[in-house]
Write a protein that binds this DNA or RNA. Structure first.
Length: 504
RNA sequence: GGUACCGUGGCCGAGUGGCUAGGCUGAGGUCUGCAAAACCUCCUACAGCAGUUCGAAUCUGCUCGGUACCUCCA
């Protein structure tokens, strides 16, 4: 049996996955900051970890998947007058912070549903866990690894590094961090520049504020994940995921905080997805090159040649290994669009094929099995498991599927008899294609053709066209096809005289 | 400046000592009343230089180019 291997950012190696509690998996993924609209870059981790989640469930694990909503906001720049991102924008838009947060949370949930990602089992909010965060900070202070200055609390990195390996996850050297030449306001509050905030005292104009033992303020950025992961997954859990850009300082700090509170390293397997780039540059707010998801789905953006269906985006992301950068371009997306269409149509063709047995009257035809083809198909299908077990290599699984497409389409066209495959292989093919395409990859049909009335009308038009064709009345048959094409419906003749249609 | 990573055919992207991804595009063909689709065939690449090896896109060194993180970031 193949076992699942995961590239662990912490050890920088592929490791065999073994859960802490047999049969169960605890997984935490850093969720969005809902102070603005999600963009294409955000789609990557959520789709990547959706596949991880789906695959773990497919393997039979009971998975607790925790993905937070960061709604407490963070200061724009550490040390500067607490300029909470959310409160700042709330003033501009004349909205209640809670209203703003709700708006973007709803939009995010909507986009996730478009992508057909499964909801996490727990989706905790930072504002809903202020008490847990304060509790954790108190523990860190009591343990002697944090200090209070003017109502703010900072984590003492140098002290931590004396006994623990700070920087291991991100490959950082503490001495380098201490020497960073960057000047930051309010830096003088910290003992060392590598220290990070656990709690920040809030300036009077700051809207989001909570009482704490150190005065009115708000939590530091890293503590929410530590607090919520500990609460719902325990002191040590299996998988923590997020974008590579969170490696430092976010995840590094998370490890430090949790280790002090829980006396154990929090995470067994750290998984980090790479970035989506555009023209080779990371897509991100700071680069001003983001394409929002609503823009992507509607095509309303100067960089977009057209609108792209959420499933096309999902497929596009799955065609690359999650640890490689993925470069956005209209060309690349359109290539994915066509590829997905081809794969999906072939998959539907497969669904319509009967089992390998021959029709009764043709027994004399002696259906002969093509051993070579049978073996090829069996190998290609069996490799699905092998490839996904190799650090979730969805790109290779898809490549194999595309090698199966001509075989399936030929069976449909009857240029290869279905009986060329052994019944066993045919059943395996059908079953695994379904499991991988729908259950694990979470792909769905792009066209919205599931409408009984439309289907009835189409059947009628097809009937008329067939009649016209049989009378060689091509003017009528072409008229039907051309006018449908004008409406975005393509009608295709099939070899056996049947007709097939798809909505563009 | 520090630390990583990357450079694959027209484009996107797997792979990582010998076999050869895959998608899109392009060319030719089969099929078809015509289309479209489908099917078949072709286009054989790994930044450059040097080295290790029987053999390197894959290992080592250097050069060039690019990116990310070090600050909010998925």
């Amino acid at each position: 049996m193949n076992e699942l291997k995961i590239y662990n950012s912490y050890s920088r190696k592929k490791e065999t996955f073994t859960p802490i509690t047999p049969g169960h998996v605890g997984m935490y993924v850093c969720g969005p900051t809902v102070s603005g609209e999600s963009h294409l870059g955000h789609a990557r981790p959520y789709i990547t970890f959706d596949v991880v989640y789906r695959y773990l469930m497919h393997l039979g694990y009971k998975v607790r998947y925790v993905r937070n909503i960061t709604d407490a906001g963070h200061f724009e720049e550490e040390g500067r007058e607490a300029e909470d991102k959310i409160s700042k924008k709330a003033v501009l838009e004349k909205l209640e912070p809670m209203e703003l947060v709700q708006k973007y949370t709803n939009l995010y949930h909507w986009a996730m549903a478009q992508f057909n990602t499964l909801p996490p089992t727990i989706e905790p909010t930072a504002t809903g866990h202020i008490i847990e965060q304060i509790g954790m900070i108190e523990e860190i202070i009591n343990a002697g690894f944090a200090y209070v200055v003017n109502g703010s609390v900072y984590f003492d990195v140098k002290k931590y590094a004396a006994s623990y390996d700070y920087g291991k996850l991100s490959g950082r050297v503490l001495d380098d961090l201490l020497e960073t030449t960057r000047e930051l306001d309010g830096q003088e509050e910290k003992r060392d520049r590598a220290d990070f905030a656990l709690w920040k005292s809030a300036a009077p104009e700051h809207i989001m504020r909570w009482k704490s033992p150190w005065g009115v303020g708000f939590p530091g950025w890293h503590i929410e994940c530590s607090a919520m992961a500990t609460k719902y997954l325990g002191k040590q859990f299996d998988i923590h995921g997020g974008g590579m850009d969170l490696l430092f300082p976010h995840h590094e700090s998370e490890i430090a905080q949790s280790t002090i509170c829980n006396h154990v390293a929090p995470v067994r397997y750290w998984i980090h997805n790479n970035m989506i780039t555009i023209g080779g540059k990371k897509m991100g707010k700071s680069y001003n090159n983001v394409i929002k998801l609503t823009e992507l789905f509607s095509g309303m953006h100067p960089l977009l040649a057209k609108a792209y269906h959420p499933m096309v985006i999902r497929f596009f992301i799955l065609q690359t290994h999650y640890r490689s950068t993925l470069d956005f371009s209209n060309e690349a997306l359109q290539a994915s669009e066509k590829g997905l269409k081809r794969l999906w149509e072939s998959y539907e063709n497969l669904g319509k094929l009967g089992t390998g047995s021959q029709p009764a009257g043709q027994a004399s035809m002696e259906p002969k099995e093509d051993e070579e083809l049978d073996k090829k198909v069996k190998t290609l299908v069996n490799e699905f498991d092998e490839f996904i077990n190799d650090d979730f290599n969805t790109a290779k699984v898809l490549a194999n599927m595309f090698e199966l497409v001509p075989v399936i389409n030929s069976m449909k066209d009857k240029s290869i008899p279905v009986a060329a495959l052994s019944k066993e292989t045919f059943v395996l093919l059908k079953q695994q294609m379904k499991i991988y395409i729908e259950d694990i990859f979470g792909l769905k049909n792009v066209s919205e053709a599931d409408n009984a009335k439309l289907k009835g009308v189409m059947d009628l038009l097809i009937d008329i066209r067939k009649e016209a064709k049989s009378k060689k009345d091509f003017a009528t048959s072409d008229k039907i096809r051309n006018q449908l094409q004008g409406l975005g419906i393509s009608l295709k003749d099939e070899k056996d005289g049947g007709m097939n249609w798809t909505i563009e």
